[in-house]
Amino acid sequence: MRSDRSSTPLSLKIAAGAGLLFLHVPILLIFLYAFTTEEKSYQFPPPGLTLQWFAVTWNRPDVWEALLLSIKVASIATAIALVLGTLCAAAVSQTRFFGREVISLLVILPIALPGIITGIALRSAFSMADIPFSVWTIVLGHATFCVVVVYNNAVARFRRVSGSLIEASMDLGADGFQTFRHVILPNIGTALLAGGMLAFALSFDEVIVTTFTGGQQSTLPIWMLEELIRPRQRPVTNVVAMVVVLVTFLPILAAYYLTREGDQIAGAGK
């Protein structure tokens, strides 16, 4: 949509700017609070600024444990989602078969329905099947809703790898595996990387399903949730919150730059 004639109305500028400020100011506040000297309340403005909480947080084994568990879960879930999402995208975009719509729906359902439903469904299934909580029960849930992010990115890119590229490769003497290695993979690689980054961010941050599938284990979001409900160590929480913001921004930015020419990261992916 172009507008070459009229200049931007002032009221629209203000409304759009205010909207964006509304989205960003709270996140910026997190950065300020990480440095506050106040321990007992959320007092604003902070009475003083200090770096001491970074050191305190650094020496907290429970934070490290939660962080490591989160990274572990997100890595495994991302790996599974990458495999499943790519397979599914390849099937849907490279072959014609009956029921493709059903497959797309099946992939999207886990994020289309509220997370609490996925969570409670998995939990009751675990208890029915007598499966004890472990890293794997968390991974199972995370991988399920991460598939869609990889799938969305891969499908968009597969559409650009036209069928004739694959035929050209076979025509020149490459078998199925060689074609995959030399033509398909290089062309969908960045999309998969972007999808993987987003899946990692999604899993790293997930809390709703995890409360049902984690048992006594605590991932970083679960650790934060406990702090939110019963604040005990506000300064440490402030620092953790800031670190989480920084850690999730990186994959998002990376995914944006990886997919920027042509397709966009599916915002609906979360």
């Binding site: 996140i27 506040l29 979001p221 929480t237 913001v245 990261i265 915002g267």
Partner: peptide, 15 residues
């Protein structure tokens, strides 16, 4: 729009 959309749900609530 994308950064706030994707940034941590809990951190947003905490903020």
């Amino acid at each position: 729009v994308m950064l706030p959309l994707w940034s941590s749900y809990l951190v947003k609530i905490y903020a």
